[in-house]
Design a protein around this nucleic acid. Structure first.
Lengths: 206, 206
DNA sequence: TGTTATATTAACTACATGGTTAAACCAATT
DNA sequence: AATTGGTTTAACCATGTAGTTAATATAACA
């Protein structure tokens, strides 16, 4: 019974995640979420009192997943070479598996940055999974040791994340501009990772 | 009179652009657009028969502006050094001046890529401002001459655009992660451009 | 000045949507 | 068996919203 409840909650959250990712907050329909989770609409409000609250819960889950994955990777001892080689791969492959997460995150990044700030702050505060400060410190040390060319750890990280994330945002754009449809996704991501790692290593390693 | 009509149209389009950028398609309210353009709501439907059509018109304008700027830059004779130095600057400064355009474009890139494809195709077809094929050819030639390391012109362009665009999408994220609020926008963009150009030139020039 | 075509508006409609409610259902406890 | 507590549902409500309409103002022109 308690298991059932937890299960229903999970089913709702998964359905909500899909709906919010596909249509954005305003475009998402509570009835659609209910239908997709195979429950009565009233149940949504029983479990999560409002659309807004449901969304916030989903958002928190998204950040938790993304930063969980990154956090566990960072905790290893790393050289800059290894970092620039593995980070894009992990990030790109993770997003390829969970494109909904990126959609939700980017949507909020653009339309409600304060949401992102709040959710991020909460994650960093509550969960142990990902602490930005040690990472920024590590990058600073690398520069101090003359291993990398970018002095500012923020720009260092931005360059990495930018190239990784854009593999997804930019795909339709690139297809439209070039007129070439990407045939095979696996192939595309493979070549994208190679290009990103190459640019980053040549561009930022000393 | 005819001038008035054109003026009203422009006012509507500007108001619509702001509203769509701020709230996305589903979140945008026709009444809000009317209010912001200081006209009666019915006028929106008089000028642009439906929300959908108004949106498409806005989208077309967005692409036209963005690619107009880029097109006129590309038409000059260019070396890869110059290209990698100037493109990010032009792009980043343009978006800094018109953040609404990026918001609309990215929103659609994520939620309705087919919209983007269609609008892009129309722009490329109708307007002379920007032709992707010559640019892609130019990049290929650069690689043939051994001037750049990235063989695939699509990935070459993706790397540039990714780093430029992310200056905007990523700003709130970076602020949230680092806990540091960007003090001065001009300062931030200046350093961002420097970092992007540095990575691109070191990373992709031979 | 009267006529006509175009612009503009207030009021309205039809419908979708977030949220509520009251009653029913079900499992466990007494 | 009766009671109790949490869970589920169908039906409902209030409001917001894209889109319409019918009437009115305005400029242009004959």
């Amino acid at each position: 019974m308690k298991k059932d409840k937890q299960q229903t909650r999970e089913r709702i959250l998964l359905a909500a995640q899909k709906e919010f990712a596909a249509r954005g907050y305003a475009g998402a329909r509570m009835e659609a979420i209910a239908g997709s989770a195979a429950i009565n609409k009233a149940m949504l409000f029983y479990y999560f009192s409002s659309k807004d609250n449901l969304y916030r819960t989903v958002l928190l889950g998204v950040f938790s997943e993304i930063f969980g994955e990154i956090g566990s990777f960072i905790s290893q001892s790393l050289t800059p070479e290894l970092f620039l080689e593995k980070f894009p791969e992990i990030y790109i492959r993770f997003i390829a598996r969970h494109p909904d997460l990126l959609r939700i995150m980017v949507f909020d990044l653009i339309h409600n940055p304060e949401n992102v700030t709040a959710a991020m702050a909460q994650i960093i505060h509550e969960k142990m999974s990902f602490k930005p400060q040690p990472l920024l410190g590590l990058v600073k040390r690398w520069h101090g040791q003359g291993l990398i060319s970018e002095a500012d750890p923020l720009h260092f990280m931005m360059n990495i994340v930018a190239l990784s994330i854009f593999s997804f945002i930019g795909k339709p754009m690139v297809e439209a501009i070039s007129g070439i449809q990407v045939e095979n996704d696996e192939d595309f991501y493979h070549r994208r990772i190679a290009s990103v790692v190459n640019v980053l290593q040549r561009g930022m390693l000393k």
